[in-house]
Each structure stands twice: as C-alpha cells, then as structure tokens.
Design a protein around this nucleic acid. Sequence first.
DNA 1: GACGGCGATACCGCCCGGGTATCGCGCCTG
DNA 2: CAGGCGCGATACCCGGGCGGTATCGCCGTC
Lengths: 282, 282
Amino acid sequence: METRELRYFVAVAEELHFGRAAQRLGIAQPPLSRAIGGLERRLGTLLLERGSRGVALTGPGAVLLREARAALDAVDAAERRTRRAALAATGRPAVVLAAKAGASGELLAKLLDAYAAEPGAVAVDVALCGPGEQTRLLHDGRADIALLHRPFDDTAGFDTEDLHSEGQVAILPAGHPLSARPYLRLAEVTGLPDLPLPRWPHPDGTFPDGSGPQVRDHTQLTQLIALGRACAVVPESGRTGLREDLTAVPVPDAPRVTTVIAWPPHSRSTAVAGLVRAATAL
Amino acid sequence: METRELRYFVAVAEELHFGRAAQRLGIAQPPLSRAIGGLERRLGTLLLERGSRGVALTGPGAVLLREARAALDAVDAAERRTRRAALAATGRPAVVLAAKAGASGELLAKLLDAYAAEPGAVAVDVALCGPGEQTRLLHDGRADIALLHRPFDDTAGFDTEDLHSEGQVAILPAGHPLSARPYLRLAEVTGLPDLPLPRWPHPDGTFPDGSGPQVRDHTQLTQLIALGRACAVVPESGRTGLREDLTAVPVPDAPRVTTVIAWPPHSRSTAVAGLVRAATAL
DNA sequence: GACGGCGATACCGCCCGGGTATCGCGCCTG
DNA sequence: CAGGCGCGATACCCGGGCGGTATCGCCGTC
C-alpha cells in the first residue's frame, strides 16, 4: 500500500463524500474513485458503503481509517525527524518540546533552566499547543518530547516519567457563594446550574454535546469565569497568577493530576535523554 | 514520501550496497540510485555516504532508517489489520496472540481456557515465535496481542498489564558439581569457563560477539546443556517438563521475570479487551 | 596499465495516475 | 410521472515517472 492511497482513503473516510475529498486533495473525483476501488480490490473487501445519499464506513473501513492515520503519522514523523537530523548535523541542533499553553509554567521554566545548565545541552524549541494536542505532535514528529497531564492526556504508546503530582482546585468568580468555603467536593462543583463546566474541543475541533459554554484556551476560560458564566476544576498550579476577580477553592476529592514527561519509545536522541534526566532530577 | 521510497531506502541502508539492494527488491540498480537520489534531494540532505568501497549511513540516514522501519511496520499493520477485519466480518473472527515458544506454557493454557469461557469469545490463533519476535509481530500487525517477558522484551510503545512474576533458575547438566547446591549466585553461573552462557540471535538473525555456543530455540538449548556444553538462566516456569538429565538450581539474585500481556495502544478490538480482562483475572 | 566492481548517468518505452466527458442511478420535486 | 439534480462509476486520452538496458566514471587491485 502506498501512502498516496492511504491519504486518499483517509480523506474520503473523513469527508464521507468523494467530491469534497477530491477537492481537498486537489485532484479530480474520478481518479479518487479509482484509487479507492483499487484499494478495495487489493484488500478484497468493501471499505465504503456507497448509499444513494452519501457514503458510510464499513467495519474494515473503520479499522483502516484508524490504522491509516497512525501509519501516515509515522511516515510524516520519519520525514520530519530526518529533516531535523539534517539540520542538526549542519546548523544549530535543537529539540522541540510540546507543552500545553498555560499549564506547568513554573515546572517548564525550571526544566529548561536545569537542562540548559547541562554540558552539551542543545537549544530547546518550545511548542505551546492546545489541550490534548501534544500527543499528536509527538506522534507525527513535530515534537521530540512533551509534557503531558494524566489522566487528561493519553500517554499510551510513549515512554513516560512522572514529574509532579498535584491536587485540583475549583476556579470560581470572586464573590460567588461557594468561593468562601475552605474546600469543595467535586460533586458540588460539577452540578452547579448557574456555573456550568465548559466544554473543550475534541482533537478534531468539534465540541462534545452538552450545555456548557465552548472554550478553546485558558484566556477564554478565565474570562468566562470572571463573567460568572462558568466555573472550572484545574490543577493547583493553575492558581498562580490568577486574576483578582477569580477565586480558587481546593477540591480534595478531584482526581490528582500528574505531570509526566513523554517521548517516543524508539527515540535515540541524546538531547531527549538529557531533558528526561534533567526533568527527573528536578 | 511514498512507502516505495522508504522500502528502497531501507533495503539500501540494510545492504549498504546498491546492487544487492536492487536485487533484493527485484528491480535494476539504476532506478534504485535515482529513487534514493530523489529522496535525498527532497529531504535536502545526504542519506548515504558513497565511499569508494561500499556505502555508509550518514547521521540523518540513520535516523531515517529507524523511522522508516517504524513507518513501514505501521503501513503493514494497517493492511494486515484491515484484511483481518474483513475476514472477521464475513467468516470466523479471530485474534492472533503471539507468545514465545517454550515459555509461559501453563499460563498460556490457563489464559486461553479462561478467555474461551467468556461469552462472545472468538477464536484465538496462537503465533509461537522466537525470543524477542513478539514485539515485531505486534508492531507490523501480524499479531493483535502478545505475552512478553520483562526485562527481556521491549514493552515500549505498547499498553501492558502485569500477569505474573517469578524468579530464575540455572539449568545445569545433572551431575555437574554445582547442580547439588541449594541455590547459586548469578555471578557463579555467568562465570563458568566449562559451561558458557549461550548466545541468542538478535532480531536481524545475527549473533552477538562472544564465545558461547549459538542457539536459536529451546530445544537446541536443552540439548547443549545436556551435552555439558552450556548452561542457562531461565525463569522458574522453564523447569516444568525438564529432561531427566538436567537440573534446575534457583538463582535468587537474578532479576525477577515478569510476564506481561501487551497490545497496541490504539487497539479497539473487543477480543483484545476480553483477552486482557481474562488475563488479569487469572 | 588493464581489469573489475560499483554507483551515476543517458536514454527509451510503457504503465499508471490524473484529466475531461459522460453515464447510471436514486431521490426529490413540480 | 417526467424532469432535474446530486453523486459516484465508467470511458477514454494524455503525460510524467518508473523501470529497463547500455554506458560512463571512479577507484582499488593485481
């Protein structure tokens, strides 16, 4: 199977529409139909159910969609990492570290300092990204190493090392009745009709069903809370640098959040090893 | 990058010889040279150092070799798993479980029994393979789930669940002076001049340097030990069904061996989940 | 200095991937 | 029920690229 075929299939499987997929791929629709047809013939199975109205994935098609995405990520990673190795060989070598914007700020700063103090340290490019984006960057080679947060991020498929564990706090508008309490139970926070929990986007950009406001980043979140339209439960470290009009109240029974450093299991980079060493020594 | 290019590059990088690589790929040498050249041009870096005598990998070339193997495994896995999903949809569905031949026999039998008793259990094809081969099968999709042994097998990149932990024993010819001892220290066994430890092949089929006899499977090993030409340190469970002319002596300070069940992190198969459930409930 | 091994280059033919035009088939609609 | 339309499949053509053969250029080695 060629990557071209996989790319074509993923496009159709995502669009569920040959015409739109072809447009997205920048080709005409007939070659796309042929390519998918050939794939199905070679695999000996129907991948897409062509109904009179639109297209649907078959069982094997769903399997191929998942596997093809992983395979294409691996191919992309191969290209990116080779390119970066070429850069490192001639110019300034660097590693890319992916971290969630607005999280672990202090820990990140300490890590960068500690690593920079090591002999032979190379430049560290920090890729700040949205929630849950880090694993994607690691998988497709845009990042070499990442800071993740269990249980929120999916650490499956990576080597990890625990760095830090912390409880969570509820962020409420200052002046809200609950904000004076010494601590809160998780059930008390999640059930507030006047302050719903916000909805974060899935990796594909869509939002889960529900009634809370949609947020995409930390700024939107704090603003919504300040407006009295939402509340949130975040790791303790999120209370540093909190706006004046917001209050943090501990939520002892919320799951503890562990910050981990993660890297692709077959990584051989000395820079990655150095970062891990520096991180675990913090 | 197309998988064809990756396959070509891996062939040359492994053979370190354009002619032989071309032969292995079933094409002529000139198209191969051109393909590699094109790859290098597009990546903007030299991948192979063409010396007067043979070919050597550059730094970026070594990176690409590692990444390309992973990517090609992922593509193979996509094809195999789709094919198997197609089979499962029409005929008898099955999972493939990879296990090291001659290891964990009893545990494997119990696992298969326990899983078969579950409602909705599907057929389990057991792929017995050589030491260290299981991870390969998992990576390229020939297997859906595997029994691995830490610290021998590399569990990186898989989800795992510990099943069983055991000490190790030394296998000696009956009648050897040490065979009467109640236990042995690891250093005593590894330093025997008359009974060297055998050498196991690497995944690529080559043997590590050293002086011990080369073995490829358990039968060869027991035969060598019986002949008084080698000894071995193996998990306790390896003493079940031992030949009469061999003796097992505990080695308490050898690292404990943990049998784990492992599966690809993005696996969605209910059969895999059922096997894991059955295994952890043992 | 002739030879041989090996990768690069030159050149050619053909297949396949991509394009346009058109068809076939449901489904909605007046 | 006819006509229109949306959408994927099919027919057919064209060009680029992949693979083939022949050959060159460069080094070692007798």
